[in-house]
């Protein structure tokens, strides 16, 4: 629990208390004829400022043991007694005057102590509420910024420079030896580039479109990795037109290549499967790569996943899921589950 601050600005609090005490002293002086104004002021101010002082000195310490509202009671009592003692000394020279001879001061002080406590704690509570509200606003702002940052990162990560240049080198290499494959690769690269430009503007695509992009990407990787990569895409064709947010499938496919298949000398296979599951659709990307125990350290394997998870949370709230598990005999399975109805 957060620690409440009783006094953000001691000077201000002491001034308010002073005004309050002045008022009490005047009222008591006017309604009773017992003492002089000077005596009333002295007692009133010593009590008020003693209570302030007690909060200033003991506030932090007491909150270690008690909640802020309960802690205020003993602090007030302590300040009250201390103030009465000083008041007693000031008027009669005896610290016990108000505890032995004249109980009217004690009764009045206790009464105004409670009134003051209620007034000040209400004000503190109001301030606290205002502060909470400000913090909540700040939090909302931070969340929005986070979403934007994630978006930007996703956009930047769409076409990696390393992948782009590698693909172009492959095309350069293939032009003479296998012109058809070179042309095919250029077509696939065009599909990828076009989709990544389009996706910055489009909010929602369909499962089919997303899988076409994945296919273009995998075809290029197949050329690049030669015999080391095989892939299958197994679509439930009734799901083709189900709307899907972009940039959910693609990062997972890239992860499977980068951290799953590519680090393995003998490569592996990627299986993409879509299936309906009640009101949800599941898209599964399974690889037969190194899996979680691979000895090759490929840093940053979690960042792509984190981005997908954040995106799912932002776009679908609690209704979508990304689940990672181990493939058998080796490799990883990433499965996203999103509601068919969309967002």
């Amino acid at each position: 629990m957060a620690e409440a601050r009783y006094m953000d600005n001691p000077l201000r609090t002491f001034t308010y208390t002073g005004v309050f005490c002045l008022g009490i002293a005047l009222v008591i002086w006017l309604v009773s004829d017992s003492a002089s104004l000077w005596v009333n002021l002295a007692v009133s101010f010593s009590i008020g400022w003693s209570i302030n002082l007690a909060f200033l000195l003991l506030g932090g310490l007491m909150q270690q043991f008690l909640n802020p509202y309960v802690a205020a009671i003993p602090i007030t009592a302590l300040g009250l007694c201390f103030g009465l003692t000083i008041g007693g000394v000031l008027i009669t020279g005896s610290p016990w005057y108000f505890f032995q001879n004249d109980f009217s001061g004690l009764v009045l002080a206790a009464f105004f102590g409670i009134v003051g406590f209620v007034l000040f704690s209400t004000r503190a509570r109001l301030e606290q509420t205002a502060a909470d509200l400000a913090r909540a606003n700040l939090e909302t702002e931070r969340q929005e910024r986070l979403v934007m940052e994630t978006e930007i990162k996703l956009l930047q990560a769409q076409i990696e420079p390393h992948f782009l240049f590698n693909t172009l080198s492959n095309v350069a290499g293939l032009i003479r030896t296998d012109p058809e494959a070179a042309e095919e690769t250029l077509h696939n690269l065009t599909t990828l580039l076009r989709s990544s430009l389009k996706r910055t503007r489009e909010a929602v695509t369909t499962i089919q479109q997303e899988l076409d992009i994945a296919r273009a990407y995998l075809e290029i990787q197949k050329i690049r990795m030669q015999g080391r990569l095989e892939y299958t895409i197994d679509i439930d064709s009734s799901l083709n037109d189900v709307p899907l947010q972009p940039l959910l499938v693609q990062p997972l496919v890239e992860n499977a290549i980068k951290h799953g298949i590519d680090p393995m000398e003998d490569g592996g296979t990627i299986h993409i499967t879509t299936r309906a599951n009640g009101p949800y659709v599941e898209i599964e990307i399974a690889d037969t790569g190194g899996g979680p125990d691979t000895s090759t350290p490929t840093a940053g394997s979690g960042t792509g996943l984190m981005n997908v998870r954040k995106r799912l949370a932002t776009l679908y709230g609690d209704t979508a899921q990304l689940v990672l598990s181990e493939n058998s005999p080796r490799g990883m399975i990433a499965c996203i589950k999103v509601p068919v109805a969309g967002t």
Partner: peptide, 15 residues
């Protein structure tokens, strides 16, 4: 590796 029943989920330490 997380989960106490038969299905283990993987969580990256980056997350």
């Amino acid at each position: 590796r997380t989960g106490l029943d038969d299905t283990t989920h993987l969580v990256s330490t980056d997350e």
